[in-house]
Amino acid sequence: MSDIVSIIQRVLGDVDLVLGWTATGAGGVAAPARFQTAAEAERAVFNATCVHNLAVHLPRLKDQTVGIVAKGCDSRSVAQLIQEREIDRDRVKVIGVRGLGGSIDVRKIWRFHGYGVPVDARTDSLFIDGKEVDRQEFLRQKCLGCRDMDPVIYDELFEASGSSITGIADAATVETALSETGLGTSLTAAEAMSAAGEDESRPLGELFAKMNSAERRLFWREQYSRCIRCYACREACPMCFCRDVCIMQTTDPHWTGAGVDAGEAEMMQLIRVNHLAGRCTGCGECERACPVGIPLMLLMNKQNQVIEELFGYRAGTDLEARPPLLTFDIKGDSRSEK
């Protein structure tokens, strides 16, 4: 088994730079980095706090040949970018990570143990402030339903030899919207939330699944009222590569106004959901990046699930596949004829 440093150093022989992680991010956890020389690559690490989806940088690096360390989920984003001809397969070298055993929700650790608490998040164990804790408890919610332990595409393979994730739900039961964001402990005047749930410690997705339309509308209004329009959801998304010409910010067409309120935030997210239909790989970066904790994956996961049901399609799993909304089936779609 090769370590991550030597793999990156080897790949650097073929590319201009490699996207990976160093251990020196804010709060003492891994942060994304670019390596251009073998010496720089000495600083590369891979651990369970390497949560970021580095594929977000690929569209910005189109004029270079790039190596990228990609977890199973991230590799789907790379594949989808290739599928959409946003990047060229020949110009990207994928270092796939296999057998990670899930990555860690750092914010959850910070929330309960304080920001910047020393974290040693290996691929098979987790130590917080020197004490071993139940790794499972701090896994990202999305990892619990992982169906992408093996990278979809790769040129090099890094065996992370992590622990197995217990309680992985099979595809059929990864049903209604999983969301990373747990419930807070305090009560607000959210009628929607109290109507739907008795146990606040349960994942938000379960409560959301039980709400009716009116309750969900209230729920979203409250969630969106926190939005500050920093566009972190969009900027963190590997598939949102329109970036600087996004219709969320244009005045012509005028899909959203310039104000910052729940209504505009709602329209922004409707735009995102719509534009990511059949393209979202469910990496969860939008929700992870949201600084005010809006559970965006409730919508994205739901849509991905519907698309799989309707069209048998999962974005970023087949380089040759045609995205479902760019084609049609004269006979096969007739179920929806009304």
């Binding site: 339309s213 959901v273 739901k302 849509q303 519907v306 698309i307 909304l325």
Partner: peptide, 14 residues
């Protein structure tokens, strides 16, 4: 296709 997907998504939007 688009509108079938949309109609299935409406409940999630509230």
């Amino acid at each position: 296709r688009r509108l079938e997907l949309l109609s299935r998504m409406l409940p999630a939007f509230g």
